[in-house]
Design a protein around this nucleic acid. Structure first.
Lengths: 150, 150
DNA sequence: GCAGTATATTTCAAGCTTGAAGAAATTAGC
DNA sequence: GCTAATTTCTTCAAGCTTGAAATATACTGC
């Protein structure tokens, strides 16, 4: 039940994945450091705030965890801390008493807007070497990569 | 000290990064699940074993943490668990009493070889949609992406 | 040799993350 | 309406991860 993986293309795919992962981690580490030093916050917090901000209205915990590709237990923990710091707020859903609506507070929105601009600049700096052609190519590759899985 | 990031290329770079991160997380989550269900292990353990296996001889903790782009405290923790499970072994360096040499045990090597083959197959499956041209393109893009940072 | 500096590792507190189990509410089938 | 299955969220234990402090050793310049 396991054919050997030794043809050229397979090997190249594995190398490509390892390379991709390495580059992604390096960029992620850089951004984590940037958020910590310049804005005294963390990547998970930023991700949650970004999702809530982008969504316009409030989200349920499940929507949030699915969007961010993390477990629901994780979403609970990060939102707990954002709420503790006054950046997010939970309100019970009027329609469904199982669900909670999470949204940024006014302070949270303002805070995120500051963060987002700097974050975008930093990403742009890190990816400054990429041309429009690179972005075109990457777009296609990411699309076909994502297609491979459910 | 902060120019606005609103030109087209900058915006595309940000979107490309978010896309890349999303795809990488999805693949990573899939592999994590695969390792857990099929092999009762975790991605960090796999990464450490892979580094030790690939290196041939033993590595120091610092070499290991730099290779994997993680903190030294993290390397300590994962190696602790691998050692506890009899898969890795620490031996004091004869040359430098500050450093430790970490290596896989015999069992660790055998275990990793089983894992590695399956892991490679799984990656190949996830990336099955990528052609040789995609891999060429990705290679260039990753190279230019990495060039952007220290 | 000594003082100061740098390096290697571990320890620690805090936070992140997961998967499983539990509590509460909704939905579906009868 | 009742029961069973499903959904939503939280809690929990374990593990992962970080950055900083502590410890121990090695190096460098006098």
């Amino acid at each position: 039940m396991s054919e050997p993986v030794d043809d050229l293309l397979s090997r190249r795919r594995l190398r490509a994945w390892l390379r991709l992962l390495g580059v992604a981690r390096k960029v992620e580490n850089h951004l984590r450091e940037f958020l910590r030093v310049e804005h005294a916050t963390t990547l998970p917090r930023f991700d949650v705030m970004a999702a809530l901000h982008a969504n316009g209205g409030p989200m349920t915990m499940t929507e949030l965890s699915r969007r961010l590709l993390v477990s629901n237990g994780n979403a609970t923990a990060v939102v707990d801390r954002l709420e503790r710091d006054g950046l997010a707020r939970r309100t019970p859903s009027p329609d469904d008493r199982r669900t909670v609506h999470v949204a940024l507070t006014e302070v949270g929105h303002r805070r995120f807007e500051e963060l987002a601009a700097d974050h975008a600049r930093e990403v742009n700096k890190l990816l400054a070497g990429l041309t429009a052609q690179d972005l075109d190519a990457l777009r296609g590759v990411m699309h076909r990569m994502r297609g491979g899985q459910g």
